[in-house]
Design a protein around this nucleic acid. Structure first.
Lengths: 226, 226
DNA sequence: ACAGTCACATACCTTCGGTATGTATGTTCC
DNA sequence: GGAACATACATACCGAAGGTATGTGACTGT
């Protein structure tokens, strides 16, 4: 044990001054609640910091030291809550997927009684949300290489699964000609993802988005009426 | 300059024993040809070794030391021919794209007089070639994160560009209803890429491929007849 | 209040991408 | 044909970054 007591005397030092929770009022209100809140707050800070850096610098160029510094924590905290860089990114990715899935579901449910139209609206929502370069960097560029196919699909509620359900339901309800749902799901989901990337890199993203939605409309009409 | 003469006396040591070319016959046959051949051979070895490791272990998990060892060279050689890991991967990626593009073109040209059918055949070729997990790991999983969008599209003859040309030509020739070519290109190319990944992970890849080609047929027919 | 656990902080190790430098093999020019 | 130069590497080293071992104070059940 070289150089034990570092610097000044003991006590919780700089990185963060962890002391969340609503003041120090009722200590007996919640038995083991304090530690949970502290943990949750730290995890929240780590995920927020990581999401910001991953989104702008990318997975490879983001160092855990930078994440910890931004979160006001040290690597001890990070490795206490995550097994490593992969799982940290995994957490960020899961949140991103959750947000996308929420947007898709909300759009879908507005016209859920018309299955095919509902899938179109869900697709539109996914496309519009996925245009954000930060979202793209995480979910479309870095996630495949960092997490792999299996992890991407098993993590939280992924959008591909949502798309599959929408396609399957449209088929079941007879909104489009009968067929296996998987192939069409892949074509639709992959097409939308690639479209989002292309739109974000276009000279005029707004125009590109409009053109893409037009094409999507044509495709949906063509599929339904064949 | 610490520890100058390392180990035994000088002389070209183990890593490779570079001595390509057709023997040492006519020395005056080609003026500056020997070095070129040597360089080309080294680059070839590096790209081959890198492709093997990148394909199986992925970009992040592949170390340059491992690549050099497999190629029978040291890092001095690698950094003489490439600026770094990115460019090495870039070279591997470019070759992969070239091979895919060649397969697409060959299939397309067989029925080039029917633009829409030709694009279908090109799509089929891309799909079948992209099912290989090694190809996928390089071109679909790691390339986006490692190279980014711009580099992927400007590197060599990329398949998306080929798809675009096929779509644009089909529109120009009136094989499908008029529309901007870019959105449909994205939907098609992205859909095929995602489909390839799904097929490779399916329980029965052959059956999944057949179903996907059926769906592709339906989609092409629907688009043409709308 | 005391023992045990949790949530971190500190210090260290190892791997790996990248660089600086040395050197043998061509290549060119006189 | 040999000196001068360029090319194609090999060797040795550096710094950054992911990961680990260990210590310590705050929190918690008894």
């Amino acid at each position: 044990m070289p150089a034990t007591s570092t610097g000044a005397a003991g006590g919780a030092r700089r990185p963060g001054t962890r002391s969340r929770g609503a003041g120090g009022a009722a200590t007996s209100a919640a038995p083991r609640q304090r530690q949970r809140e502290r943990s949750d707050a730290t995890v929240e800070d780590l995920l927020t910091a990581a999401r910001a850096l991953f989104a702008t610098d990318g997975y490879g160029a983001t160092s855990l030291d930078a994440v910890c510094e931004r979160a006001g924590v040290t690597k001890g905290a990070l490795y206490h809550h995550f097994t490593g860089k992969r799982e940290l990114f995994s957490g960020v990715y899961a949140r991103e997927q959750e947000a996308l899935a929420a947007a898709i579901s909300a759009a879908y449910l507005k016209v859920a009684d018309r299955p095919w139209e509902a899938l179109f609206e869900g697709s539109r929502a996914y496309l519009e949300a996925s245009i954000d370069p930060e979202v793209q960097r995480i979910t479309l560029f870095d996630a495949p290489g960092a997490l792999g196919w299996e992890a991407m699909r098993t993590l939280g509620f992924d959008c591909r699964e949502l798309t599959f359900r929408g396609v399957a339901r449209a088929i079941r309800k007879g909104a489009i000609p009968a067929r296996p749902a998987d192939p069409l799901t892949s074509m639709l989901y992959g097409g939308l993802s690639e479209s989002a990337m292309a739109i974000a890199r276009a000279e005029d993203p707004q125009a590109a988005l409009a053109e893409t939605l037009d094409e999507l409309r044509r495709l949906f009409d063509a599929i339904a009426g064949s």
